[in-house]
Every structure is written in structure tokens, then in C-alpha cells.
């Protein structure tokens, strides 16, 4: 075995051990904050794993969404738990659970080992769908096979997934309507001195990277989801820096941003009946431009929805007092 292979295998072994250790720590460790940090590192290691397994698209998505946005949301939860809990309560301590450990441990272990054995024993001989997908992706007008699956072969999955994302936000609004919890990140009166310059530096970088990922998605790793998550991260930073003011008034631009992806995609699904016998068919002319348009809308919606989910308010307004120009409300 050549040295490079040996090194790669050694890396894989370490990676797997690391994943298992982090997952175990995240779940069994004491202290919420510690668990959350472990889980975030676990997400980053997963991103490395995806890259190792030949899925750079997933690596990007996991790093941006799985570790990044989920991590930010979880840190939010930590902050809320710390700031809103009374000292006389100990809600973070586990109540006695329905399933005792002596039963849960062998049960889960048996399930896990059984699944591992099963996955190992299933022969990897492809099958009709992989064959058809690999073949169709070769000649597809989108050069990134994953994008062609997401926006053409299985477009309805992507479309309905946008509905799932939107529903998370609507669900959070149902809760907001009942009780307005205090803002986790109150807008500072005097922003920290370093922040504006830091933000000024990081904005073009993230914006360009996001737009590049969006643009690249049609032919190289990247796409609307990765780009959207990155722009979402940018939005989160703006909120933390106090550039966005959370409000409970409905905002037109906010509403447009969160719905444009699902709306445009659904309109396309309906309109495609004009040129094809089945919905979600791409036209012969201009399919590429159409995909780019839909992806751009998806990106905007994903970014806006993720930011609003993070902030936990109905909408965001750009603060007028600062002289920073920006198109997002």
C-alpha cells in the first residue's frame, strides 16, 4: 500500500474516532454550553467527512448550514437558557427518563451495530436510479450533477423543502404572537469600536463568496443553499452588530424575501404546463437562465429565513442612524 493511501486511511480512522467522541460528548456531557460546542465541532468534522467521501457540495452545505447556522441557533438557545432561567430552578438537569440506561444502551448499540452490518453487507451494485442519474447528469445543461438533481430531476423535493423551511418560520411566528420574549441581542446604543471596521472588511468577502457559490453551483460545488446559508451568516453578523433592528411590525421587504423562492418556483411549476405536458419541465430555450433565476430567488429566501429564525422576531429593519448603505430591510 503506498504511503499516501496509508496516510489517508489513518486520517479516516482519526476522523471517525473524532466524530464518535464528539457525538458522545455532545449527548452525554454535562452542561448545555459544552454540549453545544461539541456538537458544533462535530458539524465541522462532518463537513470534512463529506469532503473525504467525495461530496464537496455537502461539505460546503454542512459547514454553512449544519455547523454554522445550526450552531448559531444552538448558542442562542444557550443564551436564552442562561438569561431566562431562574436560579431556583434546574431545568437543565435531566428528569428521570422513561427508558433506563441499562435498557437504552444495549438497545441502541444493537440497533447501531445491526445497521452497520446491514449497510456493509448490502452489495454496492448501483441500481436503476443511480445508473439513470449518472447517465442523465452527463448530458445535462447543468454541469454540476447535484444541482441538476436538485433543480431538474427531483425539483419537487427542493420546492417542497422550501415550504418546510418557510413553515419553520411561520411556526416560530405562532409562538411570537403568543408571547414576545425579550430580545436575546439587544441593539447596543454604542456599537463596539472595532465592529464597524470588522464588518466593513467581512461584508465584501462574505458577499462575494456567497455570490460566487451561487454562480458556481451550476457547474462546480456550490449552489443556492450554500450561498443562502453564507448570506444568512452575514445577516446574523449584521444583527449582532446592531445594524438590523428587530421589530414586530410586518415588513413588506421581509415578506417578499422569505417568499420569493417558494413563490417563483411554484409559479414556474404551474407555468411549465404551457410548454410541456408535465409540471416542473424546463423549456428547451432559456432553461439555464431560468434555473439561475430560481436559484437566485431560493438563495435570497434561504438567507432571509435563516436570519429571521435566528433573530426570533417578525421582521428586521435596517438601522437608519448608521450611514451604511444596504438593500435589505
Amino acid at each position: 500500500m503506498p504511503v499516501s493511501d496509508l496516510l489517508a486511511s489513518g486520517f479516516d480512522v482519526l476522523l471517525c474516532i473524532g466524530l464518535l467522541w464528539l457525538a458522545w460528548q455532545a449527548i452525554t456531557g454535562t452542561g448545555l454550553f459544552r454540549s453545544v460546542v461539541m456538537f458544533m465541532v462535530f458539524g465541522l468534522m462532518m463537513a470534512v467527512t463529506w469532503a473525504r467521501l467525495g461530496s464537496p457540495d455537502l461539505a460546503l452545505a454542512e459547514a454553512a448550514i449544519g455547523a454554522g447556522i445550526t450552531g448559531a441557533l444552538l448558542l442562542n438557545a444557550c443564551r436564552a437558557a442562561v438569561s431566562e432561567m431562574r436560579s431556583d430552578e434546574q431545568p437543565l438537569r435531566d428528569r428521570p427518563s422513561g427508558v433506563p440506561k441499562w435498557l437504552a444502551l444495549p438497545l441502541s448499540l444493537a440497533a447501531g451495530v445491526g445497521l452497520a452490518w446491514l449497510m456493509h453487507s448490502i452489495p454496492r451494485d448501483g441500481g436503476p436510479t443511480p445508473e439513470a442519474a449518472i447517465k442523465a447528469a452527463e448530458t445535462h445543461f447543468l454541469d454540476n450533477p447535484i444541482t441538476s438533481v436538485l433543480l431538474d430531476f427531483r425539483a419537487i423535493d427542493t420546492l417542497l423543502e422550501m415550504a418546510v423551511l418557510l413553515l419553520a418560520l411561520v411556526g416560530a411566528r405562532v409562538l411570537l404572537d403568543q408571547r414576545r420574549l425579550p430580545a436575546l441581542y439587544p441593539v447596543p446604543d454604542h456599537p463596539m469600536p472595532m465592529l464597524p471596521s470588522l464588518l466593513a472588511m467581512i461584508t465584501p468577502v462574505l458577499l462575494l463568496t456567497g455570490l460566487y457559490l451561487f454562480w458556481a453551483g451550476s457547474h462546480a460545488p456550490g449552489g443556492a443553499f450554500q450561498a443562502g446559508a453564507l448570506l444568512g451568516a452575514l445577516g446574523v453578523m449584521y444583527q449582532l452588530a446592531g445594524r438590523f433592528t428587530p421589530t414586530h411590525e410586518p415588513g413588506t421587504v421581509n415578506a417578499l424575501l422569505i417568499t420569493v423562492g417558494l413563490g417563483l418556483f411554484s409559479l414556474f411549476a404551474c407555468l411549465s404546463l404551457l410548454w410541456a405536458p408535465a409540471p416542473l419541465s424546463h423549456p428547451e430555450q432559456g432553461a439555464y437562465a431560468l434555473v439561475l433565476l430560481i436559484e437566485f430567488a431560493l438563495m435570497l429566501s434561504i438567507a432571509a429565513t435563516l436570519v429571521l429564525l435566528f433573530v426570533g422576531s417578525r421582521s428586521l429593519q435596517l438601522r437608519r442612524s448608521t450611514n451604511h448603505p444596504g438593500g435589505r430591510q
Partner: peptide
């Protein structure tokens, strides 16, 4: 959907 024949499409 999308005019993609099985087993590729949905």
C-alpha cells in the same frame, strides 16, 4: 414530473 422518465424522475 419534469418529463423525466422513471427511474430518474419523481
Amino acid at each position: 414530473l419534469g418529463g423525466h422518465e422513471l427511474p430518474l424522475g419523481i
